[in-house]
Design a protein around this nucleic acid. Sequence first.
DNA 1: AAACAGACTTGGAATAATTTTG
DNA 2: CAAAATTATTCCAAGTCTGTTT
Length: 589
Amino acid sequence: MRKSKTDKEEQQQKSQAKEEEKEENKWKWWEEEHYEDGVKWRFLEHKGPLFAPEYEPLTDNVRFHYNGQPMKLSANAEEVATFFGKMLDHEYTTNAIFRANFFTDWREVMTSAERKLITNLNKCDFQEIHTYFTEKTEAKRVQSKEVKQDLKMEQEAIAQEYGYCTMDGHRERIANYKIEPPGLFRGRGSHPKMGKLKNRIQPEDVIINCSRDSKIPVPPTGHNWKEVRFDNKVTWLASWTENVQGAMKYIMLNPSSKLKGEKDWQKFEIARRLKGCVDDIRAKYSADLKSREMKSRQRAVALYFIDKLALRAGNEKEEGETADTVGCCSLRVEHIKLHNKLNGQACVVEFDFLGKDSIRYYNKVLVKKQVFKNLKHFMQNKDPSDDVFDRLNTHNLNKHLQELMEGLTAKVFRTYNASITLQHQLEQLTDSEGSEAEKLLSYNRANRAVAVLCNHQRTAPKSFDQSMKKIQAKIEAKKEQIDLTKSELKSAKMYHKVKKDKKSKLVVEKKKKMVQKLEEQLTKLEVQATDREENKQIALGTSKLNYLDPRITVAWCKKYDVPIEKVYNKTQREKFAWAIDMTEEDFVF
DNA sequence: AAACAGACTTGGAATAATTTTG
DNA sequence: CAAAATTATTCCAAGTCTGTTT
């Protein structure tokens, strides 16, 4: 027993050392030249994607019931039934659209006999299926450490085989080497297609992309690829078309790869170029607010919103195919209220619309008089469902931006404003005298300001209130402890005054130190509580990962002596390896 | 110029792994 | 030590934007 434990520890140490060693000779692609425009790689070799495991039919003791009667379903119908059964405690399964779409698609995979019998979803009982899968998950959860370890090793072996490719002489990690398993489509918001069946993808659906002179991936036995192509102007390794929306899906590299990293770096460089000319662009669109041409005036107002409020461009979407969401260019009259006066402020625009992922954007904004005037004009004599910017779309907006600065599109404003906000906030909020915890709070607050700007929201964790109470209780307990220790210190001092010996002095010192330590712990807790409370409905992840130039963060860490691990976890450090390696303390976005 | 296809980034939720707590 | 809480990772949907076709 004991021996095996030390073995394990040794093993762990070894693998850790190995990882560190790997760290040493990591490829610094950012120190190399990059390719001519359009060429993404010279050599690409990979194993092809990993397909979802085959369906395992249910044993006879797990029964589906129709109209109270147990019923054995055909393999196909049963598989789709399990998709629904697994989700039984999810709100989706009570949604009328979800149910209707599911039922239609389910009936299509049924045998004609089944289809004839099963005509009403309300008469279907998936409870046993649900229980079966819940128990299965639970059984998996409680299995022994050894079994879990073995399973993990197996997964790791598969990842080693399928999860990497060779690109131009380097082993690069693949982000999603697994083909998406079949299941029920879960759209966000009120999506007209939610509940539809997402088909199982076969090799015959998959296009492989690699080098002509590489080892071409071998399709699973008895199967063929849809196509094998050798296109080095694209970054994907495999692709297929998904049946619910008809959208293409791709297998691509991990964010830590050169291909992704270089693009990411370039994105921030474009945003920095915008910084150089944003004043001119602002002057231009401010002037355009008064243009004779309607189109220019609409474009100017839209740009004003995109810049000031970090709204998304807002492409037009096919009606009825997706949830009804909008961005700037697709705003409708019903999404905007104009207030000549609101709470003592003149010219207030009230936004209320569903944006990407059906996240609500609600904001009351004080705007320039001319913007207000224009909006009033644009919205005159229109129905609520009419477009505010009827002469504008993302295409001609971006075309205009392209003329103002090479590479400029609407989304660059989001990147620019996000990053510059972080930089300013960090300057403003960080106290170089503060503790590490306080500095981190400042960082999170700066990050939060960006998330608020970009409207990155999350549903509050369901145990949020409880967890808040808990941390408050901890704080109270700590305070009590401090009071107690303080009074102990006081009496120790008194005792020392009388005794005046070494031993009693030592006690005083000890108590002093203890009070200090406890007070540090207290502030740390308080800071933690504040941070958590402020973060209740804010999602920091997206801005951190996609909008904030990592060099700002790295420079801040260096300047204030905060270890990078405190702000970036392992994945984030891998993604931003280029920034961590190249950034000095004096970097300015 | 509008519609469509394609490729790539961005997004929150779900799930898994890890850490803390009782 | 197990359960609960927290954090990291995975998942895959939903955007942006470009290029091509009609």
